[in-house]
Simulated assay, not measured.
Amino acid sequence: MSTIVVLSGSPSAVSRTAALCAHLADRLGSLGHEVRTVHVRDLPAEALLSADTGHPRIAEVVGLIGEADGVLVASPVYKAAYSGLLKTLLDLLPQFAFTGKVVLPIVTGGSPAHVLAIDYALRPVLTSLGADHVVPGWFVLDRHIVLRDDGATLEPDAATPLYRVADAFAHAVDARRPLARAS
């Protein structure tokens, strides 16, 4: 069984990005993966801002990522890039924290004008962290994510292509796992 870590980079307590992460975590779990979700906003701010990698909660997240076969990194778009909160976590990870891993970037935003945040802001950082394979990411418009008391639903026109991307990611994790274990 492959392990996937979902990093939710939204700073908001009520978040479409976080709801989308939960939705995708359920889907990846139903495909046979063990999924662990990390809401970066729940990590201690002082430890994040001071890059205290010795803090138990930060060390736990670094350990989860180290043991994972795949990482889904999700963020809302702010100022044409991913969230500063997510940036603080990515900045304190070891230089090659994503080596041997398949990574899926997911970005949410209010306008299609922000779709390039995946390739121009997030992907270079994921690559610099040593990701062996960054699969094509996906941008989801906020209005396509419907928040409900029991989670989120997606409008069908948004769900179908997102599920194709998530399923391709799951397949890439499964295919990559034996290679990563052998090295």
Rank of each mutant, 00 (worst) to 15 (best):
S2G: 07
L7P: 04
S8Y: 03
G9C: 10
S10D: 11
S12W: 15
S15G: 11
A19F: 00
C21Q: 02
A22I: 01
H23S: 11
D26N: 14
L28M: 14
G29S: 15
G32I: 07
H33A: 14
V40Y: 06
D42K: 10
P44W: 06
A45I: 12
S50V: 04
I58Y: 03
E60L: 05
V61D: 10
V62K: 05
V62Q: 14
G66P: 05
D69Y: 04
G70T: 06
A74M: 08
P76A: 09
V77R: 04
A80L: 12
A81D: 11
A81V: 13
G84N: 05
L86K: 03
K87V: 09
T88C: 14
L89R: 05
L90Y: 12
L92E: 05
L93T: 07
L93H: 07
P94N: 06
F96I: 08
F96E: 14
F96W: 10
F98L: 15
T99V: 11
G100R: 15
G100M: 09
G100F: 15
V102P: 03
V102I: 09
V103Y: 12
V103C: 08
L104S: 08
P105E: 10
V107S: 04
S111F: 12
S111H: 13
P112C: 02
Y120M: 04
V125C: 04
V125S: 04
T127C: 05
A131P: 04
H133C: 13
V134E: 08
G137E: 03
G137Y: 01
F139K: 09
L141C: 06
I145L: 01
I145T: 04
V146L: 11
V146T: 14
L147W: 05
R148V: 06
D149H: 13
D150L: 05
A152W: 07
A152E: 00
T153V: 15
E155Q: 13
E155H: 12
P156G: 10
T160K: 14
T160W: 06
P161A: 05
F169L: 12
A170V: 12
H171F: 12
A172N: 13
R177D: 13
R177F: 04
R177P: 05
R177H: 09
S183K: 14
S183R: 15
S183P: 01
S183C: 13
